[in-house]
Design a protein around this nucleic acid. Structure first.
Lengths: 216, 216
DNA sequence: TATAGAATCTATAGGTTTATAGAAAAAAGC
DNA sequence: GCTTTTTTCTATAAACCTATAGATTCTATA
């Protein structure tokens, strides 16, 4: 029971560290595979002490997911609201998505992989944020169609979701794979989404950055 | 300790059912979230009896993953070996990938999401199968480039992995989302991968099958 | 129908887990 | 320096979990 007043800075800081520790452990072992003892250990305190920061293990998971999503959503919203050209926006959106993985990495991973272990009730807020993200992205595509920059016959909803799927995949790879460079991946994702891979005309020249991945 | 001889059919059949039950439970609750009691319950037997079929819970996870991958790999290999045109092959590959999800759904989900909870040693066989899949898919793309059907400047490795990411994403959605039709998703995935979404010339006319997804 | 082997059951050892309560230590305020 | 509040610790209850062992029931076949 912290005061939330003057010392709120102090508490907030410690609390944040606890969330980060939980994120790291959940990302590594999964929600059920991780024990509260693991989290406490990473934090350098005793298992019981953890309950000073979290009401329950489940609450910890919820917090981890929420912190991950907040960044993520605020990024895309600021990108979508700018009056840039479609290609610029898309590039920015993808870059931001992948960057979130790079910085907030564990939390994002936890959100994507463990969120469904939360009871429905606890997922509401999360779903709302997720929808906002999706809508913004979808909006970017719709705008592109209206302005004639994108094909008229694409399904914006489907395309937006596909991009999310693609970015999530590469986000995870970036997290696991040090040699992989965020910028390269971004460029290549943009290229595929915009041009596809059918021969027609050269899109973006390959900078010969072969991604030497030996993943999965 | 079964005989493996005459009764091997009988045992094999029951064993298969046990693997399927494990797949369903793992898919739903995750490896650590699921208990052997849950699996036994789904199978209609007692918790202890499960150990007649599995040496350990971990062994059960391994088997689930293996059964999922075997289908998956044999499919792509037969597709890749056929002398079809690139577009046909790609369509077939995507269709097969998504179909595997539709039929072997739980096992595939478990493979993708829970496999990393297996100790490295146990993952070797799995990794080998995964590599085979990736190589076949990559081969299809490389072939397309050589034959001039695909852009010369794409990174086949990256593209193949991206396709896997995309298909995995939609595979999961198909599993969770009854109104979604496999064929629609297949067509749209092929379309994105080949043509991208930049305006140029109409690719495949949209059959107006708006995917009314409200996923995530 | 008697018997061997397959399939399942019951019971349990030994361990881990979450969450709580009250004591103790650390930090802050005056 | 003394008091109050925050933070951490210790100990523990109650539940659950995996894996094993030995007894029991079922099934097929001679």
């Amino acid at each position: 029971m912290p005061t939330q007043d003057k010392n709120s800075t102090r508490y907030a800081h410690r609390h944040q560290r606890a969330v980060a520790a939980a994120a790291a452990v959940f990302a590594d072992k999964g929600f059920h595979g991780a024990s509260t003892r693991d989290i406490a250990e990473k934090l350098g305190i005793q298992q019981g002490s953890l309950y000073y920061y979290f009401k329950s293990k489940e609450a910890a998971l919820e917090e981890v997911c929420l912190t991950a999503l907040r960044d993520y959503v605020s990024h895309i919203e600021s990108i979508a609201s700018q009056p840039d050209k479609l290609e610029v926006k898309l590039q920015a959106a993808i870059a931001a998505h992948l960057a979130t993985y790079k910085h907030n990495n564990e939390a994002m991973k936890v959100h994507n992989e463990q969120r469904l272990y939360l009871p429905k009730e606890r997922r509401k807020h999360l779903n709302a944020l997720g929808s906002r993200y999706r809508q913004q992205l979808e909006g970017i595509f719709c705008e592109g169609v209206s302005s004639g920059q994108l094909r008229e016959d694409i399904d914006c909803h489907f395309t937006a979701l596909s991009l999310i799927g693609l970015c999530n995949y590469w986000g995870i790879q970036l997290l696991r794979n040090t040699p992989l460079k965020t910028e390269d991946v971004t460029v290549k994702c943009v290229d595929i989404m915009l041009h596809g891979c059918l021969a027609r005309r050269t899109g973006i020249p390959d900078t010969d950055t072969q991604t030497d991945t030996q993943v999965n």
